[in-house]
Amino acid sequence: MATTLSRDAVAGRPVDPAAPLLVVEDLHVEFRIEAGTVRAVNGLSYTLRRGETVAILGESGSGKSVSAQAVMGIIDSPPGFVTGGSVRFRGVELLDLSEADRRRVRGDRIAMIFQDALTALNPVFPVGWQIAEMFRMHRGVPRKEAREKAIELMERVKIPSARTRAGSYPHEFSGGMRQRVMIAMALSLDPEILIADEPTTALDVTVQAQIMALLAELQQQTGMGLILITHDLGVVAEVADQVVVMYAGREVEKGPSLPVYHRPAHPYTLGLMDSLPRRDVHTERLRPIKGSPPDLLAIPPGCPFRPRCPYARDICAAEEPPLAAVTSEHVSACHFWEEVSRERAGA
């Protein structure tokens, strides 16, 4: 094999054995476009440990996908720039690595799957080829052997008659099967972290459950850390250990998933819950969050959620709320988090 498989170094730098799998700290990403500067991510921090799942929750445009792309190092630059913060993979600062070194981490140590597998897979190459490419390019495995490994992976993600299907093209698969192909491709080199960017959004509900179950099973087998980007609070409650709720590029609530789910301390999280059908709470009707997220080119001063917030008062327009500790692990960026969290205290 062309490359060493030692996992004690990242791009030649020794890992810190005591460090968590991934630490993201005060991450800032902005896009400099003609109309101005879009601050897509404004100070995001979280820690992912081996075998755990961190869910990043938010509406479209909240910066959740961009933050994941920053961790992967696949933001189109220009116009996108990581302007601050730190992304440490097992203690090694990824943002300091050269592009060539980051490329060695991508796909190999940190892999990513995307929302719509039909467009995310290359339409003109057979799926087996696309999976085998991982072994050929990262490990120098010969073509034939790589193909065999690809077939094994397709079996592992439970694609029926994998051997014959390896020669098929993405459009010849169903949505669920395509996402399995994506997962097989991402897991081919046993990555330590898998970033799943809305992996089930484009799928039928029954298929969604199958894919989530598959991811959970694979995570159990490999012990990989999972970053799950989603707008589906129900998914979060089921699989996530930690939740970060993002709004307008900021983290507005963060903590272990059960407390956040059962006793949200930010009106936005509360709004997300009320806009979802739930089995455990009887509501007459769903209440969508009124209004729309702010224009990221011109975020008003104060709390970015203020215009849509039922709890908003004068202070919200003047001061951006700091992260307040609800418990030692649970934080909320709301001036009135105590009032908000009482809302569900009895539920």
Partner: peptide
Amino acid sequence: DYVRTATAKGLSRRRVVGIH
């Protein structure tokens, strides 16, 4: 989208453009 995937696979820019 598939270009983003190819980049996320850790392929070189040359391969992303030249093959994919």
